[in-house]
């Protein structure tokens, strides 16, 4: 099975693999023209100006996606041209992209957990409430610390939410309460 292909002596070996002479490129070297670097730098400046300008517009919910979109474009410009991924070994691109995949796994599961944490509890109404009463505040080790500057209760949050039986339940999340109220 592993012996399927016979190795000829005139083949070139690269990293243990037998290859034809034209395939055996040990390291990708590419000199990009000067103009390309200038173009990329200008594009980066323009995009920076763009995010800066957009931040003065009130896009509401769209603010984050737009900013992230621009940042992703900037990052891909730097990776492709400054870091030479365009002309580099394909395997380096693979390493880079699979890193992003694992970052994606990391983000997706944790954000999924956080966003769905109250769902079944709320549906059934029987589980403990994770939110604490904002008026009572958090068990705080620091006097005068915590919700001192908290504005009045957001209109959506019910003050009836009781303290969780578990002492280590969720922190007082006024904002979260509002967030959840919006989600339902």
């Amino acid at each position: 099975m592993v012996d399927a292909h016979k190795i000829e002596d005139d083949l070139v070996f690269l990293n243990g693999e037998a290859l034809g002479p034209e395939e055996a490129v040990e390291i990708q070297e590419h000199v990009s023209p000067l103009s390309l670097y200038y173009k990329v730098l200008s594009a980066l400046f323009v995009l920076t100006g763009l995010t800066y300008a957009v931040s003065y517009l009130d896009l509401g919910e769209l603010g984050l996606p737009v900013a992230m979109f621009v940042a992703v474009i900037k990052v891909s410009l730097v990776c492709t041209y400054f870091m030479h991924l365009k002309h580099d070994d394909r395997y380096h691109v693979f390493v880079f992209l699979s890193t992003l995949l694992f970052v994606g796994i990391f983000f997706t599961f944790i954000l999924f957990d956080l966003s769905s944490r109250d769902r079944l509890s709320d549906e059934q109404g029987t589980f403990f409430q994770q939110r604490m009463d904002p008026d009572k505040g958090m068990p705080s080790r620091q006097p005068g610390f915590g919700p001192g500057l908290t504005p009045a209760l957001p209109p959506g949050a019910a003050p009836a939410a009781t303290v969780a039986p578990e002492a280590t339940a969720e922190p007082a999340a006024e904002d979260k309460a509002e967030h959840d109220a919006g989600a339902h």
């Binding site: 920076t48 995010t51 800066y52 957009v54 931040s55 009130d58 896009l59 509401g60 603010g63 984050l64 900013a67 992230m68 621009v70 940042a71």
Partner: peptide, 8 residues
């Protein structure tokens, strides 16, 4: 930069 400084 955008996450800390810019995003509303």
């Amino acid at each position: 930069f955008p996450l800390l400084y810019l995003v509303r």
